[in-house]
Amino acid sequence: MSDTERAFLQTFMAQRVLTNLEAKTCLEKLRRIEKESFEITDEDTNIEKVIVSVNKSIDEFGLTIVKSRDETQPDLFHYSLVNKLGNEMSQSATTLSANELDFFKILLDQMFTGRQHKPDKDQFWIPFSGLLECSQIQGRRYEEKRNEGQFTVDEDGRKVASVYQKPLKVSEYKALIEKLRQESWIIFQGSDDSRRILPSPRLLAELRPYLTERYSQPAAEEPANGHNYLRNCVACRSIFTRGKQCSTPGCPTRLHISCEDAFYRQHQSNTCPACNSDLKDSAITV
């Protein structure tokens, strides 16, 4: 590894997610220092090449930099430094305290399975006002656990000691949300009262195993109405949270806006591969 590669990696450690543009700017600056010259070639700023080299070195530590295309903008890519051993969320979100982590998990539950999801229309964002509900859920769970006594039984039937995660106060969860945004776990859209909270590229990249395990049901176990919270884009197969949803009720087809054109071209038609209804014009944008 060269100093440029080390510094590039350190930038990822500090920032966690860089867009292709940010990564390129950073690499350009580093190469100019390395070469002691303003003149640099395209080869010097080949992000992919540097990332392959960095990934080779950090793999043994369970770390990797992954590239993902933005769900809505075709030319925008996100590079995220991912902790591969982070199947358990607590190993990824190491900067959070136990009750903050608890709140974060509730927030994710709300985002991915909240009441705003309708069988015929997904909605992976929640309004800011939805935080109150997360807080109420945390409060209810706290009360329940306290009433249950010393032990609870987890999903696998094991007896575990109850941990009372004290619910966060309003000021605390507001601070947490800001922290989650700074650490690129969530993104905000809109302003002030109409602000929305959306899952971020880092969230989708780093917590993919967690999200898939928790929110996605295998095809065989899908409910009769075909409702399944988490689906992958038919084109790129990564998690879908924004884009087009086939208008046929219960149809599993989801397609990112950024994958759309390439999909129609490759597929040589504008129709849904599952139900043959028109995607291009009549699909619901979510």
Binding site: R237, R265, Q266
Partner: peptide, 22 residues
């Protein structure tokens, strides 16, 4: 590139393919 991914439309490439990783 994503556009080429579709040729292999089987489900079992999901695990291999960690979020279209490099």
């Amino acid at each position: 590139p994503k556009s080429k991914r579709r040729e292999d439309d089987s489900n079992d490439d999901r695990d291999r393919d960690y979020n279209h990783t490099t």
